[in-house]
Design a protein around this nucleic acid. Sequence first.
DNA 1: CTGTTAGCGCTTTCAG
DNA 2: CTGAAAGCGCTAACAG
Lengths: 331, 331
Amino acid sequence: MTTIKDVARMAGVASSTVSCVLNDKGNVSEPTRIRVLEAASQLNYVRHGPASELKRNSTQTIGIIVHDMSSPYFSDLVNGIETVVMSHGYDMIVCSSLGGEKSTAHRYIRERRIDGAIVIAQNIQDQLLIEASEAGFPIVVMDRDLDAQHIVKVLMSDTQGGYLATRYLIDKGHRTIAYISGPSQSECNLHRYQGYLKALKEAGIEENPEWKIGGQYMKQDGYDAAKKLLEGELPSAVFFANDEMAIGGLEAFREHNISIPEQLSVIGFDNIPASQYMNPPLTTFRQPKRDAGQLAGHVLFQLLNGEIVETLYTLDIQCVERDSVRLLNLS
Amino acid sequence: MTTIKDVARMAGVASSTVSCVLNDKGNVSEPTRIRVLEAASQLNYVRHGPASELKRNSTQTIGIIVHDMSSPYFSDLVNGIETVVMSHGYDMIVCSSLGGEKSTAHRYIRERRIDGAIVIAQNIQDQLLIEASEAGFPIVVMDRDLDAQHIVKVLMSDTQGGYLATRYLIDKGHRTIAYISGPSQSECNLHRYQGYLKALKEAGIEENPEWKIGGQYMKQDGYDAAKKLLEGELPSAVFFANDEMAIGGLEAFREHNISIPEQLSVIGFDNIPASQYMNPPLTTFRQPKRDAGQLAGHVLFQLLNGEIVETLYTLDIQCVERDSVRLLNLS
DNA sequence: CTGTTAGCGCTTTCAG
DNA sequence: CTGAAAGCGCTAACAG
């Protein structure tokens, strides 16, 4: 392994000079600069990261914490973060929080192997985050309700999303709207539901308990829910708490020859890739993930620079209008 | 920041003893062990990663290199790797190769901030990989044709995949099979096509050039290709080089009231999530990504231990049988 | 069984 | 403008 000393020796200067040249620091005359650079490239020198990190007490990298790598859900988010991290000359790595205390995420945060973190994972303990942030480690959490002094939250509000989705249907003239819910432990489902209720109330519509059916966010649940709906009086629109269930629902309706959107309007939530391939293409709502990622990145760097920032940022949900909703004649 | 020395002082021992206790090394009497542990937890001590890495000259972490984080394609693969990395007590991080020389992937590999890498990205230069591996840095590449002394390849053979897919149709009695190809620069498309030709030839079937139509792997391309197919004489089956195009094709056929699979059989490739939601659910072929990930992980650790390993591993493609292919009456 | 010691490779004063 | 020297926090001999 070739070190800074080898380069120094070859260029006939001190190792400190080499360091200055390589880091563009301070005052080095052009001739020595060149000599050093040449020696370095001759010897194929690359700095040893950990040594540099130790000395600087900074890793110049920020970590994205995800609950497991398998979720395509995070793609856009991570992409948004990446652009801003790169523009700051920093590195970015993704760490999984799978494995609790022994997870890479835990270790990297606690051992200072990253300079800051954006937390997407929901399953990492508040404890760790609070402790770390109190020790001066900057943290931004996404879509998580964590109140702690030094932690910044970025939310893509599901409550507002549920509200907007329902409003959308109401604005199209629908007054009888079913809600097919996700798992009752799911916070985001809860929020979407609350938004739904709010919109209903605002429009002076009573909730009909028969039109609230529970599911687990899976396609099959949507299918089952639709079947159940078909047993009673049909509403004019159905709000599925996520696209996957909506897709299952579409299938059930097709089996019963209910044509969408002529006889029944359907919306989903999330805008998963498959939603556009449906027949009809599914109208759904999407979170502005890329923007949220960029925002989170910006805020993190502000934190890193010791700037004062808001402690909560909220982004608006967006409507992806396709062909599964019908405009009702308003009487 | 509390260091090992603080702990040592508090416990009334030398810092080396603390190190031994914390790393479960060598000989420390039970009483001192306990005293040290208590002092450490009292002071809320956490070791400084970079310092430890510098000293050990090892980071105990391996890197997964991806071309960008946005591809859900890699989920299973990464998952497979993760299980084996964790079982070795190592950490795993995902690095993007986006940004060329300045990408996190480049830096982490060159600066020795990881102990080894599994490369999924196709856009990272051979150069870097070869140099690193020759310097003793273990590398496993996935699905990439890179011949270098010290690099291990894990392939999920597309040639064999194309062959198997075509054989599948032939075995169901189809003799007229169209191939809707991906981009001509795409290696995996090329391989799938070669596999297709091989199966045809083996069955004594001539290729019909009218039934080979080019696309770019997008849904729209599949749609267009299907339209073109509909202008001439229809084959009895169509092999789309990927699911996305197959989905577009399905749409075109539906518009022309061609019922699948009664009038025409269709297969795709990749087993993307949307494929199961199609009408009819799409029969397709999948790469054993999870297994491949595990294999890659295993091999990497063997490399890390200096064990001798094969330089090439190949995994078989698997058929996901759904409802888009009809069994023809064999006459 | 425990403590002393000598660095790992790098950056950064600070004096020449 | 350049170099000598100190030391980041940790680990691994090795001597007591």
